[in-house]
Amino acid sequence: MTTMAHAPTHLSEAASRSKVAIWWFLASEIMLFGGLIASFVISRLGGGAQVDHSQLNVLVAAVNTFILLSSSYTMVEAFACAARGDRRGMRMFLAFTVLGGLAFLGIKAYEYTGEILHGFTPWAGTFWSFYYTMTGLHALHVAIGVIANAALCVGARLGTERPYRVEVAGLYWHFVDIVWIFLFPLVYLS
């Protein structure tokens, strides 16, 4: 195969490009969530958005936090496996990550259902508007991450995976995790 000679440099170039690109993308994502969270914080401190603690299920949210933190761990393990060529381990850890993401989304949907059934809809007040917008936007990001990780998992089965893609997907996934690290105390605890 004549293309074999090109492949290693081509791959490492693609890896460094993708890494720079995803970091720039994450920078704009920080601004997106940052703008939203800054608006919420300001509204909270100004008295506009008062948290209705009685209606939020802290325990369920804590379980969700646990799941997302752990899925971040499995994601980084998936990359470690990919980096040392352990395809089996990579598939396994990616599958765990996907399951973690799906569990997070399922639990979030369960929470939403309960709240809406009690009449706390997005238009039930400023806090609830922010609550649904922030967690909804976050959940959308989780869903995109789940799709990306699932695609990588399938790719690993077909043998088309590239370690750098796992790294890029991982960087995105950890970012989504970090957003939740701030949303959790912001919405449920403080």
Binding site: W23, L26, I30, M31, G34, A38, I42
Partner: peptide
């Protein structure tokens, strides 16, 4: 790239106070 936006968000928040 990681730190700049964090600083900008903090700046935005301060300016909204």
């Amino acid at each position: 790239i990681a730190i700049l936006p964090v600083l900008l968000v903090l700046g935005l928040m301060v300016a909204l106070f």
